[in-house]
């Protein structure tokens, strides 16, 4: 019963309104430390528009809108917005985020083809693909294809590695 009352007051809307109120207050408080001051010229202002004017306006308007959002959420009648995310879904998202971050951080050190092949294999298996022939073929073929498209056709660089040098040698033999 108590939990129900708690949920009734603290819907997702209320929690996020409180988050944005806090965010806007923090934004307003850090402006003096995070916005560089212009050099004064002959005792006057260096620019027509102070660099902290827009941040202040945005901070105050964000605070005002968030308070309006909070008040409206608290007095809202009918169905309140609840975050539609169960533990299993949350776990899936957490794992995906870890995979994304690892992919982002490992692409440079281990190379595009290797990091992409591992990421593809993990993501495809994680999403329930149990055909290992498809998983293996796609995980190896696609990174080579994308690497070839970007580095050879569009002439831009992607992180190199042992496998990319193998591709270079094969292409050199072919042409």
């Amino acid at each position: 019963m108590q939990q129900k009352n708690f949920k009734k007051i603290f819907s997702s809307d209320v929690i996020f309104a409180l988050f944005f109120i806090t965010f806007s207050i923090v934004l307003l408080l850090i402006i003096p430390y995070q916005v560089e001051k212009p050099l004064s010229f002959m005792g006057g202002a260096g620019a027509a528009l102070d660099p902290d004017l827009f941040p202040r306006v945005v901070g105050f308007f964000l605070l005002g809108t968030s308070i309006w959002y909070l008040v409206r959420s608290l007095f809202q009648t009918g169905t309140k917005l609840e975050l539609d995310l169960d533990i299993k879904g949350g776990f899936n998202i957490l794992v995906t985020l870890v995979i994304f971050l690892a992919y982002a951080l490992l692409m440079d050190p281990i190379g595009f083809i290797e990091s992409s092949a591992v990421t593809l294999a993990i993501l495809m298996s994680f999403m329930g693909n149990r055909n290992f022939l498809i998983t293996g073929g796609v995980s190896l073929g696609i990174p080579f294809g994308i690497y070839y498209l970007f580095t050879r056709q569009l002439l831009v660089s992607l992180p190199e590695s042992y496998l990319s040098s193998v591709l270079d040698k094969v292409l050199a033999l072919a042409y």
């Binding site: 994304f100 992919y103 992409s116 993501l123 495809m124 999403m127 693909n129 796609v138 696609i142």
Partner: peptide, 9 residues
């Protein structure tokens, strides 16, 4: 499950 990981890469 095949297409979405490709979009990520």
């Amino acid at each position: 499950s095949v297409l979405l990981p490709l979009t990520v890469v």
